[in-house]
Design a protein around this nucleic acid. Structure first.
Lengths: 115, 115
DNA sequence: TTTCTCTATCGTATATTTGCGATGAACGAT
DNA sequence: ATCGTTCATCGCAAATATACGATAGAGAAA
């Protein structure tokens, strides 16, 4: 089974994991960066800026759209993609919160013989 | 091919994507949280705290260890896991930096007819 | 209408991920 | 030396992810 038993995890855990999954490929990390720098970008332009075929880029865009990090707006025959500001802010603050909690406790470390 | 053409991406993009991949499962999100809260944790205890079999938990721990987010130290027959503070701090600041750059530009949004 | 461009989706191939039972290795205890 | 505990790894099955060529559909342009 590749299906995780998500029913045992909290919504927050699932949300963070799902968002991390959307960012778990260099192409998608780069797409977010490009869309931010260019403010918005037509799909075909992204294809030129990435070492991937058009069909593959389209799939990566779909994954980012799935979690709401970007949105695509039809502009004639083209599609103009841009960052979804609200979602990006939510993701930013949720991860900031997650990491800051993780960073709180660690003072004592394990014993030295690392496996 | 499931192999991304990573040779075309920067080391930073690959690092962020790889770290996100390590956090792209609710169990691993939760393991980080548990290790932080408990300061350290024997593997068997994590198995009790997660809805997964021992073999599966061990695999998730391996993935987190792969990217250096945790370390496991042998304690007799048991293994004590804990957060790798240095790596966690690096990851935290790298993601903070990434997100803050993404948040800079978005003022103008796309046209309204979302696809 | 016909043609061209642009992009999403389909179909396919391959690789990876997820999960778990079973096994083995390491260690402490008896 | 033997047994029990703990955990990593193996082996397998099923689901996902990645990549791309081919195709379809929507619109612009002729």
């Amino acid at each position: 089974m590749a299906t995780p038993k998500i029913e045992e995890f909290t919504n927050e855990e699932i949300f963070l994991a799902d968002t991390a999954k959307a960012l778990s490929h260099p192409a998608r990390i780069k797409i977010m960066k490009l869309l931010s720098e260019l403010n918005a970008c037509v799909c075909g332009e992204l294809v030129n800026l990435l070492p991937l075929a058009q069909a593959t880029v389209s799939q990566h865009l779909k994954e980012l759209k799935r979690v709401g990090l970007i949105q695509g707006d039809i502009d004639g025959p083209k599609v103009c993609y841009c960052v979804n500001v609200e979602m990006l802010q939510k993701v930013t603050s949720d991860f900031q919160n997650y990491f800051s909690k993780l960073n709180k406790r660690e003072k004592i470390s394990c014993k030295p013989k690392t496996k």
